[in-house]
Design a protein around this nucleic acid. Structure first.
Lengths: 228, 228
DNA sequence: TAGATTGTTAATCGATTAACAATC
DNA sequence: TAGATTGTTAATCGATTAACAATC
């Protein structure tokens, strides 16, 4: 009764979609069952970690047998909410917004694009895969008519927070943010950031680190001595 | 001499670009100096964490004063390798590849797009922002002529590993991968994955968790009892 | 100088890995 | 049954936070 709810660690949440994807691959390859050991080898995780992760949600395996691939996939799908349908809109119909709109993979996973919004008159009225680009000013009205679960922000940095504010006011609960800006939203609204330039910059760093051996003990010692 | 090189934790590497971005914002706003406490409030981190992170690379602050914004930004830029120029190519000139090619933010940070590659004859020969889309079969020749630091993979899932293999053979050291596939590469090649659908699925999960209160103790207990 | 704030060590917290009894 | 593999508890590892002497 008074036990504390075991919040699922973010690290686990991040791994679940990967489990789901690999289980899909296994199914396609006709693999019917898999042990945590094999699955771990495939994913590059320890068997322990996989069992531990799954254990947050319950026991899906069978001693001496392992996991039924199809069943585990379905269960993880349910946990992730992939048994539901999501209506999404894209705000900002520039290159990135259009690229996301054109990506059909999401639709297949249950994410249905309902509309796009922009302020550019040259874009408004166009359609991408039968989805109309509308005037941003119509967004509040649109959201009254349609239940929208997720809004994707693909605007320039400067416009992002303003758009977020309007979305929040219109009742959005989840934002997928591609603008290089950290959005301020009420705590009951979830924001998932895709900060592409931060990702690219990390990559550059890691590539340099690999090449130069990183800031090794020598350089570090030198730097520290310089201060001493 | 025999001390072990203090590898910079990945968590720190991920935060550095954010520091860099915020310091840029502060500069634009004309802020000359900042304490770890203020900076932490801005970023949503603890002051301790910021000081600890910076300490992996040396001491950039001054007791009683804090950090000089411009100087710290420059130092972090250097650590990240943003004082260097990077030549990049994009493989896969579909919607996503084109969107990335059109994004000018990278160019400004020192990432210069040198070429794009595709197998689609309708795309080959086109140009995006003066960068030609070439036949994928010319990629090896091209990489002999130009020093390419980073390759961006925007192909469909099925083509990604094959492209990665060719890039590796041609001497690439860093891959920015947008295909929903985990690439196998030699360990001296760095891969940064941007798995968009995993990101979207996590968002859906988090939104559901927020709404339903997640898998709470009640459901969990029930599930466990069901097995008992 | 006195106050502020760093750099850095120690304490805490959380996540990963190991171990193993339970059991299919 | 014997072997395999789970679910789960305990041990380890790493990352974050707290504390504080050093010092600008």
């Amino acid at each position: 009764m008074y036990r504390i709810r075991p919040r699922v660690p973010m690290a686990v949440v991040r791994r679940l979609p990967k489990y789901y994807r690999y289980l899909g691959d296994l199914m396609e390859r006709g693999v019917g069952r898999i042990s945590s050991k094999e699955f771990g080898r495939l994913l590059g995780f320890t068997a322990s970690q996989i069992r531990q992760d799954l254990n947050y949600f319950g026991g899906f395996g069978q001693q001496g047998y392992g996991y039924n691939v199809e069943e585990l996939r379905e269960q993880i799908g349910k946990i992730l909410g992939l048994d539901k349908k999501y209506n999404i809109i894209i705000v900002g119909a520039g290159n990135l917004g259009q690229a996301i709109a054109n990506y059909t993979g999401f639709q297949e996973s249950g994410f249905a694009l309902k509309a796009m919004f922009d302020i550019n008159p040259r874009l408004i009225g166009m359609s991408i895969r039968d989805v109309r680009i509308r005037d941003l000013d119509d967004i509040e009205g649109f959201m009254l008519e349609e239940r929208i679960d997720i809004a994707v922000i693909c605007t320039p940095k400067e416009a992002a927070q303003g758009v977020a504010d309007r979305l929040v006011k219109a009742g959005i609960r989840a934002i997928w943010n591609f603008a290089p800006e950290d959005l301020e939203v009420p705590e009951d609204v979830v924001v998932e950031n895709v900060h592409l330039s931060e990702s690219l910059i990390s990559l550059a760093y890691l590539a340099n680190e690999r090449e130069t051996g990183g800031i090794g003990e020598e350089q570090r010692a030198e730097r520290n001595n310089a201060r001493a």
